[in-house]
Simulated assay, not measured.
Amino acid sequence: LTIAGLLMVPFAIVVPEVMGIGYDTVQHTLDNQLPFWLLLGAGIAKLIITSVTLGLGMPSGVIGPTLFMGATLGGAMGLIGAQIFPDTASSVGFYAMLGMGAMMGAVLQAPLAALMALMELTRNPNIILPGMLVITTASLVTSEAFGKKSLFLTILKSQGLSYQNSPVIQALRRVSVGAIMDRSILRTERFLSREEAGKILKSEPKWLVVEGSNGPTALLPAVDLARYLEDTKPSASSGQEDEAEVPEQVDLMDIPANRRDIAPVQYQATLEEALNEFEHTSVEALYVQRHVAPMIQRIYGVVLKADIESYYQYRRS
């Protein structure tokens, strides 16, 4: 807020019309009471300061600034048209109204709403055809030429909020990760003795969560550990030299195994949030955790991306 206020000071001194909502300036523009350079400067200044304040997270609106910019810049273009074609150009207020509609169509990506706004503001059906032309052009240039979506959707995306409403996303939002997670897990240290590894396998877990220096670091199928112990088990007929080659310590991050990189996800998270976590972190598995005490996390299970896909396919069938 402080930075936005400081940035606003020079604009407020040079172009005081940018202060506030600016509906008085819009009215003066419609009445052709403002000169060209003031209209152009006020429109550009409002564009810059609105973009900066929104980018800084100011909880300010966009409808008022959009109408302001559209009116001033449209009025400036109307003055240019009046200078070039003085006999055929319409009034400056007409171009200001079209500029307001074009800005709404481009910024909000709502061409029908922008056209209806023009109808409500003018109560003149003759503005429909030129309004459709400028609003459609502005919307298509914004979406197709620059690849931009509505400002509201852009703000939601920048804040990490979801705006998708596809049937897949809706289905994933209704289910938590706790409903599909695999609970057959066991947390273990990276380095184990053969005896400790054997005790772990006796509890018959499906997955082993390997602990690192900063928490869980990998997911290991327990069957891979069992296979390694079996392959390196000294036989009764082997010599003493072979027995000396059998490692007494097992490094779970070094043995041949199908290890998976993991990342945390909270117990109350939905499948949609888990799927987003897969995309953002590029891991192969998520371990489901929950705070049970200050600085203490308990792991309840693991979720693979294939589990989420299988769940949705099962629900569809």
Rank of each mutant, 00 (worst) to 15 (best):
G5L: 08
G5E: 12
G5R: 13
L6M: 04
M8Q: 13
A12R: 15
V15S: 03
V18T: 05
V18Y: 05
G20Q: 04
Y23N: 04
D31K: 02
Q33G: 06
P35K: 14
P35G: 09
L38W: 14
L39R: 09
L40K: 08
G43C: 08
I44Y: 07
I48G: 08
I49H: 15
T50V: 05
S51W: 11
G55M: 12
L56T: 14
L56R: 13
G61K: 07
I63D: 00
I63E: 01
G64L: 09
T66W: 10
T72E: 00
T72F: 03
L73T: 11
G74D: 03
G74P: 05
G75L: 06
G78P: 08
I84F: 11
F85A: 13
D87I: 06
V92C: 07
V92H: 07
A96T: 12
M97N: 10
M97V: 09
G99K: 04
G99R: 01
G101K: 01
G101S: 10
M104P: 00
G105D: 07
A106Y: 06
Q109D: 04
L112D: 04
A114N: 02
M116L: 15
L118S: 03
T122P: 07
N124L: 07
N126K: 07
I127G: 00
I127L: 01
L129W: 12
L129H: 11
P130T: 12
L133A: 13
V134T: 13
V134K: 03
I135K: 06
T137D: 07
A138S: 13
S143H: 14
S143V: 05
A145D: 11
F146A: 06
L151P: 00
L156D: 10
K157S: 07
S158Q: 15
G160T: 06
P167L: 02
V168D: 00
Q170R: 15
I180P: 11
I180F: 08
D182W: 02
S184E: 15
S184L: 09
I185T: 03
I185G: 03
R194P: 02
E196K: 13
G198S: 12
K199H: 07
I200C: 10
L201F: 14
S203I: 14
S203V: 15
P205N: 14
P205Y: 09
P205A: 02
K206F: 07
W207R: 04
G212S: 13
N214C: 02
N214H: 11
T217K: 02
R227H: 10
L229C: 09
L229R: 07
E230S: 10
K233H: 08
K233Y: 11
S235P: 07
S238E: 15
S238M: 09
G239M: 10
E241N: 06
A244G: 05
A244C: 03
V246D: 11
Q249S: 09
Q249L: 09
D251Y: 08
D254P: 00
I255P: 13
R259H: 01
R259Q: 09
Y267T: 01
A269R: 06
E272D: 12
E277K: 15
E277D: 01
F278R: 15
F278Y: 12
H280M: 04
T281C: 06
T281E: 12
V283Q: 10
E284A: 15
A285L: 11
Y287A: 14
V288D: 10
V288L: 00
Q289G: 10
H291K: 10
A293P: 03
M295A: 10
Q297C: 10
K305G: 15
E309F: 13
S310E: 09
S310P: 02
Y311V: 03
Y314V: 02
R316V: 05
S317G: 12
